[in-house]
């Protein structure tokens, strides 16, 4: 096989809720080893697309949803540990809730250093700031130890410098990655392939080397214009894309 195998494949995929079309005949192939950035305004259908991809290969994917999926009452350690639950038997997993297992404690101790959370290890995550919570979510994805990473704006709340470092780390730890982002510069700097979505369609799918920040901005401006004209500028991301 000269070319790596296809990991995700969508052909003419559409998805609608009632009258509201979220994905509109999407066709897409992603191969093993690719690093793909997913751009586009809120409500363009990125989250839905990521979830569709997740459902194709749940066994190999570490998914980081936009909310992070953290469990508030558990500590940073436990929240990261959750990523490795499948590697632990039921009884040790029960015991771990009372007393952390030594091996995992060491591994997660090292991981939180990378995340810059070493002094928060035993704090419950409801006491953390948005950026800190997002780093915990990254920690969990890393601890899943899967070949594929699907991230829904995984570094949006983290300060720019650290965001870049962590994104780099995430990409290095995973063979394949599909990541939705808002920051166009990050996408151009770290990914080989960029997909831009609008109104549930893929409007651009090209190697990063062929794109520039200016040409990406153009897609956003069109989108912004349409959204400001929209009277229902609800915070809900699906509300925007009704055309």
């Amino acid at each position: 096989m000269s070319r790596p195998s296809v990991l995700f494949q969508l052909s003419d995929q559409s998805l609608a809720y009632g009258d509201h079309r979220v994905l509109d005949s999407i066709s897409l192939k992603i191969h093993r080893g690719e690093k793909v950035a997913l751009l586009g305004p809120s409500g363009a259908g990125k989250t839905t697309l990521l979830h569709l991809l997740y459902r194709q290969q749940p066994e190999q994917v570490a998914l980081q949803p936009q909310s992070g999926g953290l469990v508030d009452l558990l500590s940073v350690y436990q929240n990261i540990f959750i990523g490795g639950l499948d590697r632990v038997g039921t009884l040790p997993a029960l015991w771990n809730l009372l007393r952390p297992l030594a091996g995992h404690r060491r591994a997660i101790g090292a991981l939180v250093q990378t995340l810059g959370l070493e002094d928060k290890l035993w704090q419950s995550v409801d006491r953390l700031s948005g950026g800190q919570r997002q780093r915990v979510a990254i920690g969990r994805a890393l601890y899943r130890q899967q070949p594929v990473f699907l991230g829904d704006e995984p570094v949006s709340s983290i300060d720019p410098l650290q965001a870049e470092l962590l994104l780099e780390h995430l990409l290095a730890q995973h063979e394949t990655a599909v990541v939705s982002l808002h920051n166009r510069q990050l996408a151009l700097n770290h990914f080989q392939r960029i997909i831009v979505m609008r109104d549930g369609r893929i409007c651009c799918d090209a190697p990063a080397s062929e794109l520039s920040e200016q040409c990406l901005d153009a897609w956003y401006q069109q989108a912004d214009a349409s959204s400001s004209a929209d009277p229902v500028s609800a915070p809900d991301e699906w509300a925007l894309a009704q055309s």
């Binding site: 979830h51 997740y54 749940p58 066994e59 570490a62 998914l63 980081q64 949803p65 909310s67 992070g68 999926g69 953290l70 469990v71 959750i82 990523g83 639950l85 499948d86 632990v88 039921t90 997993a93 029960l94 979510a137 969990r140 994805a141 899943r144």
Partner: peptide, 15 residues
């Protein structure tokens, strides 16, 4: 959401 970040075939108790 937290369920999405777990390994898909965990037993109910752990989950």
């Amino acid at each position: 959401d937290p369920l999405l970040t777990l390994a898909p075939r965990l037993n109910s108790l752990k989950r």
